[in-house]
């Protein structure tokens, strides 16, 4: 089982040092693939957008999840299950399908629903060719698509905050904001960290939605590390070695971001 995952990981690392395509024996080239990647403007653009995308999605998911989580905890259990069911929909439907139908709301071919709404404000962005609008659209989609996860975790987290502490704070004269900021937030920090952890891992791997919403990603600045790998490995060229090097670099970036979270989880589990 582990072999099924560790094997490909090993092959990827091995290939990253070779100039190789499918079915040819390949040639050992040392760090040439890494040098080529790090010297490529397109790589840095993709890495930059992926980082911004991940950060915005993570923040949106946590804020959205917190707000909706508070509201869900304020309604009756039956209503909670009903709303939760609806809120789960974007998350459980296949990403490519969700991205497609989501993008139609912004597409004038399909009636341009959102631009009709925006018309009174005097703005009519071209969502699919204007780089800034396209980036915003992708980030907005990611929050629409993934908020359910933040909501699920935070609903449970908020229920775990002892009621006595909130009541005690109220007795001491703390306002609503103060209570949230000083009492609730600190006691659910671990859950927020968990959402951030999963979100960072998923954000750096984003592929499906970009492929659906902006198929020509490199021309509108919405290319992610993974759509870039796709083009290098299977699209424009078939450079398996180069693609493997980009994969290894992506893994290293993800790991760097993950280390603090893994250490925190580790400490919490050890003390638990």
């Amino acid at each position: 089982m582990t072999l099924l995952m560790a094997g490909p990981l090993f092959i990827t690392a091995f290939d990253s040092f070779r100039k190789v395509s499918y079915g040819d024996p390949g040639l050992f080239v040392g760090f040439a693939n890494y040098a080529a990647t790090l010297g490529d403007q397109r790589f840095w653009a993709a890495a930059g957008f992926t980082t911004v995308y991940t950060a915005a999605m993570t923040a949106g998911k946590i804020v959205g999840g917190y707000v909706v989580g508070l509201m869900l905890n304020a309604v009756r259990a039956k209503a909670r299950a009903f709303f939760l069911g609806l809120l789960l929909v974007p998350y459980v439907v296949p990403t490519v399908i969700g991205a497609l139908v989501f993008s139609w709301l912004f597409n004038s071919t399909f009636g341009g629903f959102v631009n009709v709404l925006l018309a009174p404000l005097g703005i009519a962005p071209d969502w699919f060719t204007d780089p800034a609008a396209a980036k915003f659209l992708l980030i907005f989609h990611s929050i629409w698509h993934e908020s359910a996860f933040g909501i699920l975790v935070l609903v449970a987290a908020l229920q775990s905050v002892p009621r006595e502490r909130i009541e005690a704070a109220a007795l001491d004269g703390a306002g609503w904001w103060q209570t949230q900021w000083r009492i609730v937030m600190p006691s659910i920090r671990g859950f927020i960290g968990f959402i951030a952890l999963i979100s960072i891992m998923d954000g750096f791997r984003v592929f499906d939605s970009i492929r659906m919403i902006t198929p020509a990603a490199s021309t509108v600045g919405t290319e992610s590390l993974m759509t870039y790998v796709y083009n290098v490995a299977l699209g424009e060229t078939q450079q398996l070695g180069l693609a493997s090097a980009i994969n290894v670099i992506t893994i290293i970036i993800i790991l760097i971001f993950l280390v603090p979270f893994i250490r925190q989880t580790w400490r919490e589990m050890k003390s638990a």
């Binding site: 490909p8 990981l9 092959i11 499918y22 750096f204 398996l240 994969n247 993950l258 580790w266």
Partner: peptide, 25 residues
């Protein structure tokens, strides 16, 4: 099981292409 959690997290965080490209070959 702590190590397993870390391992599961690391494997979960691997880009799909790391698995898919070798499988494709």
């Amino acid at each position: 099981s702590l190590w397993l959690l870390v391992l599961a997290l690391v494997f979960r965080s691997l880009p799909r292409f790391v698995v898919v490209l070798p499988f494709y070959s």
